[in-house]
């Protein structure tokens, strides 16, 4: 026992400092935020117009649509599942709401609630099938992506729903501040709220546990099915809301709303340090990741790079980000292989 005393006095000052540094680096957002700032600085250096009011507004406007979905997707990924149908759900909800307020002549508010209901319902179906029937989320939500596309065509006969009631135009064109409207406001409020839920609430903690190891979560008494289904419903509802904001922005229920968003959303949140394997990542990280992707896309246009390179850049960044993330994790946190061995020689 004599060896214990010097060991603790020696470690006491060193450890908090070291663990704080590790903790700081191990936090997912730090890396992305640093990368984001570097990219912004780079594009500004190359072309000061990148930080022009107009360009910033354009970036933030696009980010608000995709970002709303990213919030839900991040929560779902944290709970250990993911959803490829978000783009279809956004589009489907938008055209359903548009039809309800035009062909069915529902009051605008009811039609919007109806649209959100469609999104939540699709999420519920996804969740029930994945959790109860144990169909992999990849298959179920990929199937739902196609089903959603088909339903959009069925609902609209392939024509955009137009014209929409004037209230929709008001939602789409309101300028709250800096030329940004309701979608951006909703995005910010939802992001802050969701980030708080994941970080600080029992619900959030249980989601991390569910995504980290479902069996452990079940054994400590967490209703993991409920959490996963709930997360699917949340993603569905948020995708629907995003779809309707786009509809308001365009002023019509276009059939291509949401098309292709699913991959942008997943790429973005993964760049932001949200793990595809569940249990790791934050809303802040996911949102910053999306912002970063959009900054790169916009920045390349602004500095005059051929637009085909945008796609390539997005791909490279995603793989790079995940690669760095895996390295970081291997180094700082989980080390199932790195147990025992090194910390033992005190025993004799």
């Amino acid at each position: 026992m004599s060896s214990a005393a010097p060991a603790t006095t020696e470690e006491a000052p060193a450890l908090p400092w070291r663990s704080r540094v590790i903790g700081f680096i191990a936090i997912g957002e730090i890396g992305v935020i640093a990368a984001l700032l570097l990219l912004v600085a780079f594009f500004y250096f190359m072309q000061p117009a990148f930080l022009s009011e107009r360009n910033l507004r354009a970036i933030l406007n696009v980010v608000s649509f995709v970002g709303i979905i990213a919030i839900g997707q991040t929560m779902l990924l944290v709970a250990g599942e993911f959803d490829l149908s978000v783009g279809s759900v956004a589009g489907l909800s938008a055209v359903v709401a548009a039809k309800l307020m035009t062909a069915a002549a529902w009051p605008v508010a009811f039609a919007i609630v109806g649209g959100v209901g469609v999104g939540a319902l699709v999420g519920l179906v996804n969740g029930l099938i994945v959790v109860k029937l144990r169909i992999p989320a990849f298959i179920q939500t990929l199937g739902m992506l196609f089903i959603g596309q088909g339903l959009i065509q069925l609902v609209t006969d392939g024509y955009p729903v137009y014209p929409l009631p004037p209230e929709i135009g008001v939602i789409g064109t309101t300028n709250l501040a800096f030329g940004l409207g309701w979608s951006f406001a909703f995005f910010i409020v939802a992001a802050v709220l969701a980030d708080f839920v994941l970080r600080r609430t029992v619900l959030g903690r249980n989601m991390y546990a569910t995504g980290g190891n479902q069996e452990v979560a079940r054994l400590v008494g967490i209703n993991t099915s409920l959490y996963k289904i709930g997360a699917f419903v949340t993603v569905g509802a948020l995708a629907a809301i995003a779809g309707m904001f786009v509809m308001a922005d365009l002023g019509s229920g276009g059939t291509s709303i949401g098309s292709g968003w699913e991959l942008t959303v997943i790429a973005g949140v993964v760049v932001g340090g949200v793990s595809l394997f569940g249990g790791a990542g934050t809303i802040a990280g996911g949102v910053v990741g999306i912002l970063m992707l959009k900054v790169v896309q916009s920045g390349l246009v602004v500095i005059g790079v051929n637009s085909n390179w945008q796609q390539i850049a997005v791909g490279v960044i995603m793989v790079l980000a995940v690669g760095l993330d895996i390295l970081r994790r291997r180094y700082f946190t989980v080390g199932a292989g790195a147990r025992g061995g090194k910390k033992k020689p005190k025993s004799s």
Partner: peptide
């Protein structure tokens, strides 16, 4: 396998 949560 079914004790620790390595992500927390």
């Amino acid at each position: 396998r079914d004790g620790l949560l390595f992500n927390l």
